[in-house]
Design a protein around this nucleic acid. Structure first.
Lengths: 253, 253
DNA sequence: TTGACATAGTGTCACAGAGCCACTATCATA
DNA sequence: TATGATAGTGGCTCTGTGACACTATGTCAA
């Protein structure tokens, strides 16, 4: 078999001639997949979408949704992620962020494999699990259930943790969790979401000041009633979906 | 040709039987490479290592060092990065960080390809370009020369920018640039490195307080003489190689 | 109708770490 | 021995977060 360098070194070839002779399938390449942690909030808890594997390897185990790059359908890496997200949830404009790429000889029994981990944030009301095109078994798992209740296939426990860690880190200095809420929300609802991800309480005044001073939300003019004093409703502006605050949330003194 | 799902769905197979029948080469996978921006400081400027491509495609163009995963030699993704770094510079324990993975149909004329971008920080005195095993043409390029003076092959201008952006961002809240200095250094030298990456001056007292209060360096007992008042020499401790400060450098008021 | 209570929202001070800037300290060099 | 350059410090100001008591406005039950 050719080594990678044989063909390319023939300097007498033009690049065009080289490409004509080149056949990618002569070379051994690792398996290449994209996996994603799709987060949402349900019943005041952070949840992640899991899919039961219908195929070998790891058949019957829970895993993060994902799959192979479609060399025809997908133009870029992120297209694979978007396509998978659409297939499972019907959503096509989430907050989407690449986290880390994992590759090793052993992570998949089929051989050397590489996966790019993404995470997505979606508003819980946007979820339409029924619109799952693939008729696979799907579950929203509360994050504390991983890996005990849901011990994931391959190294997906690790991928999940990397995504979750990234999210928890970013709560401290970005407005990212705002993407977990529907269009209209109250400041208290927003604070609650931050607290859920952070795993601890935030001081009310500090939080409100932080958000208001950042100019990332605007009043819609509506109020949310039902629970005692009505609360003003807000919506995010464009900048607010990924705003970086000047300082971290510091936590209790 | 089989689709990905054909074989896996045969539920009557055990996983062992499945793996026996499975042949990775029946499936089309993208090309998979690792590329890296190796940073160092030379003459008070940030430089990055470039390699002149000796092969098609992009023959004769400058590029970030990198290459294909060696499915035999490399156990994990990071091994590929370490191996390439060792080949080019002779160094095997740098600061190394994965930045972002780029994949698209067009970034390499050979077809769908994916590359994982890393960056490395090395002390300038560690450099041994002569020890380059591959006898390729190599250059330390000042970063402002990219892409004007050095217009890189493939999408390497973009990869470089992603690595450089990451580095610049991290100067503001981590101790990362300390990895660009030799074992012993003065606080003024450390400050200079931060300023070079940041692209602007830092107030001396603030900087020294920030570093000292972080407990990430210790006096070696030696002093650096030669320029007027001698300066105390310090060395980093383990925690200091990747310390996160509680706040960002804010810049001038 | 009214009072208890729950949640929304504010006023104001303390705190910590960054910026500012003038000051002192210690060397090389002329 | 004076000068200049670089090392290093004292002590103030500034900004954004934490703390916490306070006010505001609704629901609900008696």
């Amino acid at each position: 078999m050719n080594t990678k360098s044989d063909l390319g070194q023939k300097e007498q070839l033009t690049e065009k001639e080289f490409l004509k002779e080149y056949n990618a399938r002569e070379y051994e390449a690792p398996l290449m997949t994209v996996d994603m942690a799709i987060f949402t909030i349900r019943k005041d808890k952070l949840h992640v979408l899991l899919v039961k594997r219908a195929q070998h390897p790891g058949i019957g185990k829970w895993a993060l949704p994902g799959g192979f790059i479609d060399l025809v359908k997908d133009k870029q890496l992120v297209d694979t992620a978007r396509r998978k997200l659409k297939e499972k949830t019907g959503i096509d404009t989430p907050y989407l962020e690449q986290v880390e790429t994992f590759g090793s000889r052993r992570r998949d029994p089929r051989g050397w494999s590489v996966t790019v981990a993404y995470f997505a944030l979606i508003a819980s009301e946007d979820i339409d699990i029924a619109s799952n095109e693939t008729s696979e078994e799907i579950v929203w798992a509360a994050i504390e259930g991983i890996p005990k209740k849901y011990n994931l296939a391959f190294d997906h426990n690790v991928l999940f943790q990397a995504c979750y860690d990234r999210l928890k880190a970013k709560v401290q200095y970005t407005s990212l969790p705002i993407n977990l809420l529907p269009q209209e929300f109250t400041l208290s609802e927003l604070q609650k979401i931050f607290e859920i991800i952070l795993g601890s309480k935030i001081e009310k005044k500090s939080f409100r000041r932080r958000i208001i001073d950042a100019n990332i939300i605007g009043e819609t003019g509506n109020v949310k009633t039902g629970s005692n004093r009505p609360a003003k409703l807000y919506s995010v502006n464009a900048a607010g979906k990924s705003h970086y605050f000047p300082r971290n949330i510091e936590g209790p003194r």
